[in-house]
Design a protein around this nucleic acid. Sequence first.
DNA 1: CGTTCACACTAGCGCTTGCTTGGTTACCTC
DNA 2: GAGGTAACCAAGCAAGCGCTAGTGTGAACG
Lengths: 202, 202
Amino acid sequence: MNVMNASPRRKELTRLAAQLFVQEGFDRTTVRMLAQEMGIKSGSLFHHFKDKKEILAAVIEEGTHNALLIARRALDDCEDDPEARLRAMARAHLETLFTDRNAHVVALFEWRRLAPAASAHLSHLRDAYEALWVAVIDDALAAGLIHGDRFLVSRFVLGALNWTVRWYDPDGPRTPDDLADELVGMIMARQSEQGDSLAAHD
Amino acid sequence: MNVMNASPRRKELTRLAAQLFVQEGFDRTTVRMLAQEMGIKSGSLFHHFKDKKEILAAVIEEGTHNALLIARRALDDCEDDPEARLRAMARAHLETLFTDRNAHVVALFEWRRLAPAASAHLSHLRDAYEALWVAVIDDALAAGLIHGDRFLVSRFVLGALNWTVRWYDPDGPRTPDDLADELVGMIMARQSEQGDSLAAHD
DNA sequence: CGTTCACACTAGCGCTTGCTTGGTTACCTC
DNA sequence: GAGGTAACCAAGCAAGCGCTAGTGTGAACG
C-alpha cells in the first residue's frame, strides 16, 4: 500500500486514470474500468492506491503541479511587459488544458469530490498557481492595460479560459494560442491614446 | 406512467430534483434520496418519471425554458441600444443561475449525462437561447462597443458567466447584477476618454 | 353502487459498486 | 538458496444501485 510517494508505475497509472476521468467523469468511472485501462485486474489497483479517492487526489495533484510548472516556465520565457505576461499566462493555461489535457481538467471539474482533508493538502499548490495569476492581473491593471476589480477580472478570465474545454475542438482551425490571444485582445482597453487611464479602483 | 406532460405534481418534483442535482451532482443523487426529499418512497417515483434519466431531462428542460423566458423578458424591458441589451442579457443569465438557480445550473453541468435522443429534443430550446446571445453580441460588435470574433466573444462571455457558479457567494457583498455590469465593463472598448467609471454602474 | 384513475406503498430482484482476502510470481540482495 | 519485496491475480463479500411487481387507497364519475 503506497501512501503518497510517486513510484514510476504509479505515475503512469495516474496518467491513465486522468484520461478516463475526463472522458466519463469521476463518479461514472469504476475501478474495473480503471484496471482494464491499466491492463491489470481491479483488485491489483489497491496495491497502488489506498482507495478510489486517492486516485483522484493523485490526478488532481499531478494536474495542478503541471499547470504551475508550465505557467512559471512561460513567465520566465516571455518578455517583461504586462501585456506579454498576461498573454503568456493565458497561453500557458490553455496549454495545460489541451496538451497535458487530462489531469488539469479533472482538477478543475472534480475538485468537489475530494474529502476536505485531502483538498487541504493540495490547496497550497492551487494557491501558488492563483498567486501567479493575481500578480499578472495586478500588473496589467496598474499599467492601465485592462480595467475593473482585480478579484472579478481574474475570476472572469479564468472562467472564460476554463469553459473552453466545453466547446473547443482541437481538430478545428484554431490553435489554443489563438484563443488565448483573442481573449487578451477582448479585455484589453484599446488605447488609441496612451497613458492616463491609470484607474485606481476602490 | 407519464411521458412528457407536466402535471403540477410533476413540476414540483422536478423542482426538488434540481435542488439535489445541484448539491450532489446527478450521479451521486440516488432515487432513494430523491424520493425522500419528495416525501414519498423510492418506488412511487417511477409513477411520475419513466426512469432516472427522465428526471434529469425534465430538470434540464425546465432550466433552459426558464432561462429563455427571463432573457426574453429582460430584452423586452430594457432600452434599445447595444450596451443596454448586452448588460440586460448578462444580468438575465446570472439571474437564472442564482435565483431560479437550480435547474439552469444542472442544464449547464450535467448535459452530457443525457442520451443523445433526449438531448436532441432539448437542443432547439438551447439553440433559441444561444440565438438571443449571438444577436446581442453581433449588435455590440457592429456598434464598435466590443471587438473580436463573434464566435469567440460569445463563448468567452458565457464561459465567464457560467463559471461564476463555482465561486460566487450570494451572501457576499456583491449582487449578481454587480457581476454582470463588471463583466460588461471589462470587455467594452473604453474609447470614452474621461474615465474610470468603475463603481458607477447604472 | 361499481368502475376508474392518480398516487402511493411494500417487498425485493438482479446487478454493480468499492474494496478485501489469501495466495502466486518474478526479481533483487545477501 | 534463503529472505524480502513489489506487483499482480482469483474469488468474492457487503452494501447500495436503478427499477419492477403487485397491492391498497381515497376521490371522481356514471
